[in-house]
Every structure is written in structure tokens, then in C-alpha cells.
Design a protein around this nucleic acid. Sequence first.
DNA 1: TCTGGGGTCCTAGGACCC
DNA 2: TCTGGGGTCCTAGGACCC
Length: 418
Amino acid sequence: MYALADCNNFFVSCERVFRPDLEGKPVIVLSNNDGCAIARSNEAKAIGIKMGDPLFKIEHLVKRYGVTIFSGNMSLYGDMSNRVRQVLRSAVPAIEVYSIDEAFLDLNGMAMDFDAFAKSLSYRCRRFTGIPVSVGVSHTKTLAKIAAKLCKQYPKLRGGCYMYRREDIEKVLGRFPIEDVWGVGRRTAAKLHSLGIRTAYDFTLMEEQRVQYLFGIIGVRTWKELRGIPAIRFEDVVVANQSISNTRSFSKEIYNIEELTEQVATFATMTAEKLRKQHSVCSDLAVFVRTNRFKDDIEQVYANELITFLIPTNSTNKIVEAAINGLRRIFVKGCGYKKAGVTASGIIPEDGVTGSLFEDVALYEQDNKLMKAMDAINGCYGKGTVKLGSLGSGLIKNTHEHESPHYTTRKEDFPKVR
DNA sequence: TCTGGGGTCCTAGGACCC
DNA sequence: TCTGGGGTCCTAGGACCC
């Protein structure tokens, strides 16, 4: 048996923990730049606000229904996510953190009343963190996901749903749209619809060979999981990322290379810091810039450049230098760039680095020490206390008009209790 | 006027090897 | 006129996830 613990409307729920007056009201959380709705309360969903809707397109709904808006407050959400994980960890030997708001639990070998377990775990999450959490339990991860969705649909389940009898599962799958199944995206759903397959149950009736032929091994995996055969491994050990990206859209177009350089250098710095944090180095770095993809009256430009390091590195110096050089090669004068970013790949553990015949080992060591010192200072006195001169004043300010206080991660913002 | 960010895995095809 | 067989590795692009 596997469980999925899924936080309901997570970002909105985080805000509501500190704003209980917003319970029962339409609330949304916006992406970077206050661009799109990326989390919605049930009430906001009910009035027709869709995931990813740009704010300017839903302004009329916001006004008419008095929707409360928040800019994304990622440090708050990250902290609340940790608190929920703590509660989950206290319940089972191992969890698999799947995303900021979801985790799988391996219940194999545990003999107990899984329905009571799911309900009580949901209750404890709410009680200890303030976050409403749905806990679905079933034979496979894919079925557990469906069980968790049922919790959201049916409040009488009290946050926990144990789905195990064959006939019950068939009944649920028979009413479950295929496009809502984990692993079935837009393309696959369209293909299935054209075959007359509408529900998860319809899909389980297909022949394995046909599934393999039409949808490859991923399709077969989902097909097996829906039939109750585990095909997706439970991964409780956290492995290092295979790629690390830092990209942003700007609130207005950037035409000037100096300004763009400061942004790209800042992305590169963040990338190097993340690499060092997970004790990795990268052998490749990609830089890209692009124009505003939503404007159809301008010439669209997308350019990217790949830089390969002689010795894999996590040095801010080397990565910023590479990113700036890459940017210089692809920058075109007269272009208004709306988005840029860097991606590190070819990531390996830092203790697995082999030297190079062509680089000076002493310089390499010196650079390493410098990075350690920088991380120590920034860790102690706050991000960006020491940084490279090429960063200028860092990221340009984006629109962020509705940010809530950092209730749990900034001393001045702690709520006061009388 | 205004449209997010960060990931993973799989596959096909090219380049190359003996 | 006739022109092998069996591999590996890398990359770009597609599809999907939250």
C-alpha cells in the first residue's frame, strides 16, 4: 500500500493559516511579477478562475467577487511545507517528497486500519500546521493520487480515503476522467479521446500490447498502476538534481546589454550557490534570452548558448564569467528581451572531479576556498552580503504588490500573540 | 498596459566504434 | 552487378509533472 499526502490549494492554505478571516472566501496567489494565478481557493475555482490565468484577464472577476490576491511568498510556503513533512515523517519510516505540496508514504509491511490512519494523519497535519491535507491510500502511487482527489471532492471523507476493493476501484475509475490521471497529459488525453476512451476504467480495459505500441513504456506504467500493479518506484532517498535553472521574466523589456548582463550574472550566481549547496559541480552551462512571446507584432528572437567547462565547477567566478561570455555572443542590439536564464547540467558530485592537464590546480584550490568563505559570510549575514561586482544591484525589481509578511521566517514579521 | 518557474524521463536519430 | 552486423554515446525535442 502507498499513501499520497497532498496539501489542498497549498499556497492559498499557507496564507490562510495567518489570515483565518479569509476562510470560505475567494483567494488566489500569483506567480512572479504578479503575472498569473498559480493557486486558487475552492471559492476562486468556483467563480471560474483557472490555473495559470493572467491577472489582467480575470480582473473583472476579482472586482466582482472581491477576490483576495497575494503575490507569491515562497519562503513562507517552503517553511510551511517543511512543517507538514515533519508531521508525515512522524507517522511512517520513510516518505518520498514529490513536490512542495505532495509526499508519498510507503505503507508496505504495515498492518493497520488504513482508513483510520489516513483520516488521523490528515487531522494531525491540520492540527499541527494549520494546513488542510488530503491523504489517499491504495495499491499503487497512481491509485493513491486518485484516492487523494476523492478526499477533496467529498468532505465527508474527512481528509482520508482508503481505496482497496477491486469493485470499489472499478467504480471510482469508471467515473474518473482519463485526463485527470497522473501521467496523462494533454497530448495523451487527446489521443485516448480519439480512441473513444474517456475514463480511467476504459483505459484499463485496453490490451497491454496496444498500450505499449501507442503510448510507450510510460503508458504501460500508468496502465499497470491503474490495474493495481505497482510500476512506479517509491524513491525515499533524495538525490542531487540533474539540472539547475534560474530564469525570470522581466516586468519590461531590456534593450541594454549592461542591464541584461547584471541579470544573467545574478542568475549564474544563484545557480552556483545551489550547486554548492548540494555538493555538486556542473560541466555545462546554457544561457538563453528571448523576446516577449506574447507580442505578435515584433520579430521573435530566442537565442541560447552552451558553454562547456574544462573542469566541472561550482565556482561563482567561473559560472558568472561563462554566462556573461555566452550572453555577449548571443546578444543582439535593438532587441527587447523579456526573459532570460541560465541552466547548469552535466551535474556530478563535487568529490568526483578529475583535474585537467590544462588548468592550474593551485588557482582552482584558491577559488574553492574563496567560495567557501563567501558562502560562510552570506550564510551568516544574509544573501548577497558579499557578491561579484558584475552583479550590480542584483535582480531588477519585479511587480510584487500583494506580498504577505514572512510570518515564520523573518523575526520582524512574527505574529504577535497577546 | 498586463501572460511563472523549475524540474524529470523517454525516444529517435546522428555520429562513431570495431 | 555485387556493398555486414552489432553496438554505444550524445543530443534535441517531446511529453509530462507541480
